[in-house]
Amino acid sequence: MSGSENAGMLLRRLLSPERTPVTQAERRAADGWIDRAKFGGKITEGQAEERRARLATAKTRADLRVALTGLPGAEATTLPRLLSVVTLVWLGACLVQIAVWLMIVLFGGGFAELWWLWTVVVGGAVVGVLWSLAEGQYRAWVAGDLR
């Protein structure tokens, strides 16, 4: 994979975390969740099979969440949406500031300080922390640790 493909994939994961492809390990963990719900009397055998069929065709995390909807602890969280919004605002602010800086450099006749780096670095750190929290919460959710 080239650098631009990696950057594009990272950007898609930050802007739409629910569209991240599901791994086989996540499918196995979700299948275990369905088993626990079935053996715990929360769902019937027919409901479990229906959920497993959805699980088999799940391509994204959103599809996986649909297969587990209604099980105890399967409520949607706000962190993925918050991550998307914060990432979009951060990228927009960075692009605007870099464009203004370039205009100052080009039309001002000289090199200007890199004041926009504050937004890039601090905003990037905030996005990184949110991504880490959302990813950790998602992995705990799939493993069934959130009840």
Rank of each mutant, 00 (worst) to 15 (best):
G3S: 13
P17R: 07
R81A: 14
G136D: 03
M9A: 15
A25D: 10
L68H: 12
L102M: 07
G3D: 11
L114S: 08
D63P: 05
T69Y: 11
S4I: 14
T23E: 07
I104G: 06
L79W: 12
A58P: 08
L79G: 00
V120K: 00
W90D: 03
R147L: 11
T57S: 13
A134Y: 06
G110V: 02
E26Y: 08
L88V: 11
T57W: 01
R139Q: 15
G124T: 07
S132Y: 15
G32M: 09
F107G: 03
G109V: 00
R36M: 05
G110A: 07
G92C: 03
Q137V: 12
G109P: 04
V89R: 03
T60H: 07
G109Y: 06
V122S: 10
G144K: 08
A56L: 10
G108E: 01
L83R: 02
L91D: 00
F39W: 05
F111W: 09
A48H: 07
P80R: 09
G32L: 08
D35S: 11
G41S: 07
R27W: 07
A37V: 09
V127G: 05
I98S: 02
G92A: 07
L14F: 07
A48Q: 07
A30K: 12
A112H: 10
W141Y: 12
Q24F: 01
T23D: 07
T77L: 08
Q97D: 05
R12Y: 00
E5M: 14
A29K: 10
G123V: 03
L79A: 06
R65L: 12
A56S: 14
E113G: 14
W141I: 03
G41P: 05
R61P: 01
G3W: 12
A7Y: 10
W116V: 06
K59F: 01
G108C: 04
A93G: 01
G123R: 03
A112R: 09
L117M: 12
S4N: 09
V120E: 01
G124M: 03
T87A: 08
L88P: 01
A25I: 08
T87H: 02
A25L: 11
T20A: 13
T78F: 14
R139K: 14
A76I: 14
D145F: 10
N6G: 05
W116G: 00
